[in-house]
Design a protein around this nucleic acid. Sequence first.
DNA 1: ACCCAGGAAATTC
DNA 2: GAATTTCATGGG
Length: 281
Amino acid sequence: MDYHVQSDTITIHHITNFDLQQTLNCGQCFRWKEEDGGFTGVVKDKVVTAYFKNRQLTLKNCSEEDFLSLWQNYFDLHRDYGKIRKDLSGLNPILKKAAGYAPGIRILNQDPWEALCTFILSQNNNIPRIQGIVQRLCEAFGSPITGNHFTFPGAETLAPLSVEDLAPIRSGFRAKYVLDAAQKVANKEVELSALRSAPLPQAKETLMQIKGVGPKVADCALLYGLHRLECFPMDVWMTRAMATLFPGVEASSFGDYAGIAQQYIFHYSRMNPQLFEQACG
DNA sequence: ACCCAGGAAATTC
DNA sequence: GAATTTCATGGG
């Protein structure tokens, strides 16, 4: 990794197949905010502002140690997305088009609990509203960091709460699901870290013991939180996209990186809804 | 008022 | 068992 450090800022050079806007606005995460050309986000108890231009990623308010121990992995910088995209593009011409639409997408290495919790909140919901609920959750129950930023509240913090306690975040019927997840994670009934290496069907089954976690949310937790890149979450957009753009194609045919294919297809579909409009006349 | 939103549980058939 | 309805909340 070719980078240099200047006071509280790190610049990483020669990054290809990467784009902040595509990666942070493709629906896999809910806490990054775009402001004056950069993105500010929180991971664990660290806040950075990120900029990307001319193949250079700049992280402000980031020490070398934080970059090496946290952000490098968070942005999945070591993985060869060029090769993955090329391989996926060879499988199907429509997939090639979807991947080429946003070639800078990367699957983030998010905190497993945060991914599970936020995708429980995502069900039958829309992205702007999910972002609002997550922000209120952090403001109400996270720990303050700096500049009005908060950590994502841990499972052990949420586990003792009641649905009434969660009323201010206005998550509706999902509050009881978040609490059940928090309790099962806090009391080790579900050990998220163990799901990194567990057989996939078993990992999925374990997550689905949690109330409010079905096949789709389990796949999201595995893909976005535990980096199980073969997972292929099927939501309303993906169901539509597979039926319309990939008739007769099975997700499993996309192989070990089906989850990355899923993200290309999801983003491409959401940015081009006209693909699914009923032709009339 | 009606529809939908990165679904899943509860109910009905 | 498979198909349908309900679940809170907010924006269009």
